[in-house]
Amino acid sequence: MTTQAPLGPFPPGDHPGRLARLRQRLAEEGLDALVVTSLVHVRYLTGFSGSAGRLVLTPEDGLLLTDGRYRTQVEEQLQVAGVRGLVEPRVSGLAGQQEALVELLGASGRRVGLEADHLSWSAARRTAELLPEAELVPTTGLVEGLRLVKDPAELARLEAAAHVADQALAEVLGLLAPGHQEREVAEALDHAMRRLGAEDRAFETIVASGPNAAKPHARPGDRVLAPGDTVVVDFGATVDGYRSDMTRTFILGPVGEDLEAAVALVHEAQALGVATVAPGRATGEVDAACRDRIAAAGLAERFEHATGHGVGLEVHEAPAVAAGATAILAPGVVVTVEPGVYLPGRGGVRVEDTVVVTDDGCRPLTRFPKEPVLPL
């Protein structure tokens, strides 16, 4: 095997534009400021990837509060993102950060938004105690809405993450054979992704064989792959913060008519779902394309999860691709399509691709072949 150098360089993201669009959202909501506490959102808006930080954004000012561990990192990352000057780093202990918050937002009559989905009750109460003169407003979806459509810089990272995963699976294909443990395959995949340039896996890798494949989120264990198994492999890579997500199901020899039929059915349903992804379509329509096909085969109760989800800085983010979901797809939105059928005690089948919506449909980011039969 050859060793691949770290991926990139990647085009810079439009962080100044993201801040400007968020300020416009604040104006539309009648807010004087927003305290961004989601670390994912802080990274999306400023490029800062530390494990502690809050962004305070007003129409005129941006303040990134963090501690001394990140004194050098925050300066470097704000500079690279092109927002140094738009966002001022304030590096201090907790007391100093609180002082900065009060200084910027403590005036009477200020309407200050707090990210309701990313702030604990106790943290919200502490903020209220710090800002008794301000009106604190719970907000949802302000930054999430901006993140729905990926810009070219984000798509470049997502494509790189998907490519790493494709390569890694090709490298470990020989381990998907009787005699190897689920855990062995998963560890080999994780190692291959890192060696190929990923900074980490996107989530805990799933390798589930035989009866374990009937569990949608099974953890890889000591079970040894055996003839007659279906093997579900669900995994992804993280590249510069962005994640990929792909599932393939492999067949180790004859598996019986019920599982053979399930394999064919899921592949057909997944193709129908991918064909439905297009601008103007509701994500619920994509789910229905997959779900209706499986239901028509009498296996509706064996498809027990949503058809997909958005992917980006998080492996599960908006929009949901689920029954009745009303989010409207647009060019640049990235979603997964991953129907499955699970037969308890026997095995399971899931096939998943990550796709990006284009002007006239979609294109896959994950490209590993879907042929399920492996030679023994």
Score class of each variant (00 low, 15 high):
162 A>W: 14
126 R>L: 13
175 L>C: 12
135 E>C: 02
156 A>H: 01
118 H>N: 15
120 S>P: 01
149 V>C: 08
130 L>M: 15
120 S>R: 00
126 R>F: 10
163 H>Y: 12
162 A>R: 12
116 A>V: 11
156 A>E: 05
160 A>Y: 00
138 P>M: 07
136 L>E: 15
133 E>A: 10
121 W>H: 07
172 V>F: 01
124 A>Y: 13
129 E>I: 13
165 A>H: 10
167 Q>H: 13
131 L>A: 07
120 S>W: 06
149 V>K: 12
159 E>V: 01
116 A>G: 04
162 A>V: 15
135 E>T: 02
132 P>L: 09
163 H>T: 14
128 A>V: 07
122 S>G: 05
124 A>S: 13
147 R>A: 12
165 A>M: 06
133 E>I: 02
128 A>K: 08
165 A>E: 11
130 L>I: 10
168 A>E: 00
145 G>E: 13
177 A>G: 12
165 A>K: 06
164 V>H: 04
134 A>M: 07
142 L>N: 14
143 V>R: 13
132 P>N: 14
145 G>S: 10
132 P>Q: 11
165 A>W: 08
167 Q>C: 09
129 E>T: 15
177 A>D: 12
131 L>H: 15
157 R>N: 14
169 L>A: 07
129 E>A: 08
169 L>K: 06
164 V>K: 10
118 H>K: 08
136 L>P: 15
124 A>V: 03
166 D>W: 00
153 A>G: 12
146 L>Y: 10
131 L>Q: 13
151 D>F: 00
124 A>F: 11
133 E>F: 03
162 A>Y: 15
153 A>R: 00
169 L>E: 10
138 P>G: 04
171 E>S: 06
146 L>W: 11
154 E>S: 12
170 A>Q: 11
151 D>P: 00
123 A>Q: 11
141 G>C: 02
143 V>L: 08
143 V>S: 13
132 P>T: 14
155 L>A: 05
123 A>K: 10
127 T>C: 12
140 T>V: 03
118 H>S: 09
156 A>W: 00
160 A>S: 05
150 K>C: 06
138 P>W: 14
